[in-house]
Structure formats: structure tokens, C-alpha cells
């Protein structure tokens, strides 16, 4: 059950560093003694079967869960895209994203630019409740892109995306990394992440 990344001692310039972190969910140890650091321009690819703790790892990184053991130090603004869009279903995509962009202090036009990045400018006036799974995923990714956060946490970002959208997502991640950002991606769909560190979580233990 122990998954250990090649000893990557947490560094001071790391955007996020896990130091011997353990995670317990529902009485099961999902992983323990996990250490890694992600620096500017870096990427971390989390893989593993369903229930191995990929989402928990990202929630730990986001600070939404507290580690049972170990230490997590985070020094960058963070944005998370998970399976829940967190967009007001009654509002249009542009307005719902605009609300978050204002909260994030993003410049004007950041939402439009993010939607264009993902090739879904045409979705801007559509109410969120009418979106399909893939369109909702694109809108949620657009929030992360528009947020201007340095560290992106993407939980299954390619789920529900069609074949055309995946290269757009890969390009957006590459641009973000080139600009000094970092990503942590948990995915079971192959994504092109050049020179990404890898963390493979073990099999789920049946309860």
C-alpha cells in the first residue's frame, strides 16, 4: 500500500510540497509516507485505480482535507477543477464564470479568453443547467484557467471531454507551465504532460 515517490526532498522554491503525507479515508489507509514537490513549470501526474485516493490527494493539496500524518506546504495560489462544476445552474456560463473571476480578482476578459482557449466561446450565453457533461467540464476548466492561480489541481480533467477538446486542454496546461505555473493532474485518460513527475497510487483495499 505504500507508495513512495523518488526521494524528492521538499524544496523551498516548491509551489507545493508533500512531506511523508498519509491519507486515511473511511478507516482505510489510502497512502502513506508520500513525499514530492512540484516547482514552477512542473507537473505531477497522479495515477491509480478507482478508489486509490487520487481525488483525496488533490483535496489534500487544495487544503480541503487535513493529512493524518506528514506535512503539506503550499506557497502558491491554487485553483481546483473536480467533478463538481460549482456554477450557478440558473445563470449563463459567462455570468457564472464571471462571478468567480471577480472573486479571484481576474482581469476583465479573462473568462472570454479562457472559454476561447477551450474552444467553447459559443457556450457563454447558455444557462449552466443546459450544459452537457463535457460542456460543464469545459466551463469548470475555464474557471481554473481564468482564475490566474499559479497551481492548477485537475481531478479527471479529461472526463467527458470529446476528442477535440483534449488537445486544447493539453495546450492550455503547456502554456500555463511555460508561463511558470504548475499542475497536478489525476487522470485515467492519457494526457500529454511532458516531463511530468509521476505518482502511482496503489490498488484500493476492499472495505
Amino acid at each position: 500500500m505504500t507508495t513512495r515517490q523518488s526521494p524528492n526532498a521538499p524544496r523551498h522554491d516548491a509551489m507545493i510540497a508533500f512531506d511523508a503525507v498519509a491519507c486515511v479515508r473511511g478507516g482505510n489507509v489510502l497512502f502513506e509516507d508520500l513525499s514530492f514537490a512540484v516547482c514552477e513549470g512542473g507537473a505531477l501526474l497522479v495515477s491509480g485505480p478507482n478508489g486509490a485516493g487520487k481525488s483525496s490527494l488533490l483535496r489534500l493539496a487544495a487544503g480541503l482535507l487535513d493529512p493524518v500524518a506528514g506535512r503539506i506546504s503550499r506557497s502558491a495560489t491554487t485553483a481546483l477543477t473536480d467533478e463538481r462544476a460549482a456554477l450557478d445552474p440558473e445563470q449563463s456560463v459567462a455570468r457564472a464564470l464571471g462571478w468567480w473571476a471577480r472573486l479571484d480578482g481576474a482581469p476583465d476578459g479573462a473568462v472570454d479568453a479562457a472559454l476561447a482557449t477551450l474552444g467553447c466561446t459559443h457556450l457563454a450565453p447558455v444557462p449552466v443547467r443546459l450544459l452537457s457533461t463535457g460542456q460543464r467540464k469545459r466551463a469548470a476548466l475555464a474557471r481554473t484557467i481564468a482564475s490566474g492561480a499559479a497551481l492548477w489541481l485537475l481531478d479527471e480533467p479529461a472526463n467527458g471531454l470529446d476528442a477535440d477538446a483534449i488537445p486544447l486542454l493539453e495546450a492550455a496546461i503547456a502554456r500555463h507551465r511555460a508561463a511558470g505555473g504548475a499542475v497536478m493532474v489525476a487522470t485515467h485518460i492519457a494526457l500529454a504532460l511532458p516531463d511530468a513527475q509521476r505518482v502511482a497510487l496503489g490498488a484500493a483495499v476492499p472495505a
Binding site: 487544495a62 487544503g63 480541503l64 491554487t78 485553483a79 481546483l80 473536480d82 463538481r84 462544476a85 460549482a86 456554477l87 445552474p89 468567480w100 472573486l103 479571484d104
Partner: peptide, 14 residues
């Protein structure tokens, strides 16, 4: 809580 808004707010340090 269901649509993740509370998590997104917490993530932003609110």
C-alpha cells in the same frame, strides 16, 4: 455543498 461551491470558496481562503 453538492455542487462544490463551498469547497471552491474554502480553496480561495475565504
Amino acid at each position: 455543498a453538492r455542487d462544490g461551491t463551498l469547497d471552491q470558496l474554502a480553496l480561495r481562503g475565504i
